[in-house]
Design a protein around this nucleic acid. Structure first.
Lengths: 344, 344
DNA sequence: TTGTAGGCGTTATCAT
DNA sequence: ATGATAACGCCTACAA
């Protein structure tokens, strides 16, 4: 927005008309080579830079996409944001971002605002009602990430598969009683995980799943989940996400339990800090960056379709076995005698 | 960009001229109450939403600010981003984001792009040369975050103070030999920390600082730093940031040392996961969100000055004492006999 | 190959 | 109080 030099300035200086300048800049051979050369030189000297705003106005599109996340500080969403930004860049698009602060009611206002300003929207883990989402989708192109809504494009990994891999891992290690520490009430992805649990558990011999309830990750929810997990008699816990798993681990250790010796812990997502604790966290990696990229591709296939649709991006989930899981070593459902200080 | 209904549509429907519609929407009493009421109603029914792009074109400003970060996935920058977004929202501005992926050469291209599109730029931890930064600043309003450059506005906390607090804490606990695990070569903030170290150390009786060198946080740099720290005979280590501190802690524990019993560790920033490990990390909190907010205020004071300049925002740094520090319990400079397995 | 004219959606200026 | 007109910076017919 700081540019004062316009096509007209360049035109005047190069002794041509404004349209010729425009042409020279937009195409290779719409203008005589010599003229073009001169125009380009003048433009260069004057430091001319076309205004994307004006271009957008005439073209009816801004080459900008909107990204709405619940919390940009959450590692999952900043990972998605990174993927979105990278892919958008490759496609020549800018990204304007909005953070709803987990506020469902603000989400819709923010989304509308973004729509007025962009060519399309990527909405992550929306808590909006299906009606609201549909309405949004009517107002402009929308791609949902980590959420589905009938009639609206979406991108997501197989959440069922994440818990399947986690549970199978624990089962293979010998665990037969596993606790699940769920995410916030009303979380769409928590529901998905629960469904995965329900469909996986029956296939595994002798496996018993205890639902610990809903918890708020990042706000101490993991603490209470940890205590419930121990009281439940389970030998392992699967957490809604890595944050909660980390909280659980920390709480267990403070209460004097050893991980994984006394209790195994598995998270989901593989955020960076999962690998920075000791023991490092066993978790199921979730393809967050790729989700960002895929969302951009899907959105642009709607907004700016090409002859060949943009390539699909694989969204593999994968177990990452680290140190927080091992075979159950204590007699199942028997509490150890915890030292009451943290173990060092 | 999805809006098809324009002022003219509303004007036609309400039997007035486009200018009247514009007025009705922008001011309370520029138009007859009854007319205004009708216009508003029609606008409502038609779902009219003014195009920010067109408004921007005529006004010569986009009500958008650009945010350039080295890596949006890094907790520090997503925290700043959160602060930026929140304050921008309050001021009625949108935020378009760019991630330079720590690439100094790309940084400048990205910055230029952002400038063409926004009213002003917030640039975080830039690795650009002072020349490049000055050039940018000439092309349009720029606020630097966590970096200074003569003639360019900047916002930052007192990095010297962070290391002072960390070192004083360790000294008060009784540590006399402290190692510093530095950040990447050429990092501006690492230089600041080193300066703080140099100015603080002489004031503390009997204190000896060992410079371990430069490391890359998040890529195993902490591992080698940890080994060097132990070999150095120090009883505590101050890390460039929390990531590195966490890596150091994990490595120490894997090598069989206990934290803080055998060795104390201090980080800087207080990222979320610093509180999710066990032991939890003692660190110096850095006012990242506030830096984001303050940057917006400073930028808008340039771009859109008000009668009264926007309020200054305090940028306090503060030691957060958790479990990773304690008085040195082993004979200084004497290695314990580490068990070679991780301690659980 | 190049110039002229018109318009993208909005607001500001000048009339009425 | 309201309407007509021009302009923001650019692009795209259409004309020459």
């Amino acid at each position: 927005m700081a540019d004062k030099v316009t096509v007209r300035d360049v035109a005047a200086e190069a002794k041509v008309s404004a349209s010729t300048v425009s042409r020279a800049l937009s195409s290779e051979d719409l203008v005589a080579p010599e003229t073009r050369r001169r125009i380009l030189e003048v433009a260069q000297n004057l430091g001319y830079r076309p205004s994307p705003v004006a271009q957008g106005l005439v073209a009816g599109r801004s080459k900008t996409i909107g990204l709405l996340v619940p919390d940009i500080e959450h590692p999952c969403y900043s990972a998605i944001a990174k993927g979105v930004y990278g892919q958008a860049l490759r496609e020549g698009y800018s990204v304007v971002i909005a953070d709803s602060d987990n506020d469902a009611s603000y989400e819709i206002a923010a989304a509308r605002r973004l729509q007025d300003q962009t060519d399309g929207l990527i909405v992550c883990s929306s808590k909006m009602s299906e009606q609201d989402i549909s309405a949004l989708n009517t107002a402009g192109p929308v791609v949902l990430s980590n959420r589905v809504c009938p009639g609206v494009a979406d991108v997501g990994f197989d959440a069922t598969e994440t818990v399947r891999q986690a549970v199978e891992h624990l089962h293979a290690l010998g665990h037969r009683s596993i606790a699940y520490a769920g995410g916030p009430e009303g979380s769409w992805s928590d529901e998905k995980r629960r469904k995965g649990l329900a469909s996986t558990a029956p296939k595994l011999a002798g496996l018993e799943i205890t639902d610990l309830g809903h918890f708020e990750p990042g706000f101490g929810g993991g603490g209470s989940a940890a205590d419930l997990a121990m009281a439940s008699g389970a030998t392992a816990v699967l957490a809604f996400n890595d944050f909660m798993a980390l909280e659980i681990m920390a709480r267990l250790r403070r209460r004097g339990y050893r991980v994984p010796d006394d209790f195994s812990v598995v998270g989901i997502d593989d955020i960076q800090s999962a690998n920075l604790t000791s023991p490092a966290l066993t978790t199921v990696r979730t393809p967050l960056r790729q989700i960002g990229q895929a969302s951009v591709n899907k959105l642009l296939d709607i907004v700016a379709p090409q002859a060949a649709p943009r390539p699909a991006i694989k969204l593999p989930v994968g177990l990452v076995v680290r140190e927080s899981t091992s075979p159950p070593t204590r007699a199942a459902a028997t509490k150890p005698t915890p030292a009451m200080e943290h173990v060092a």
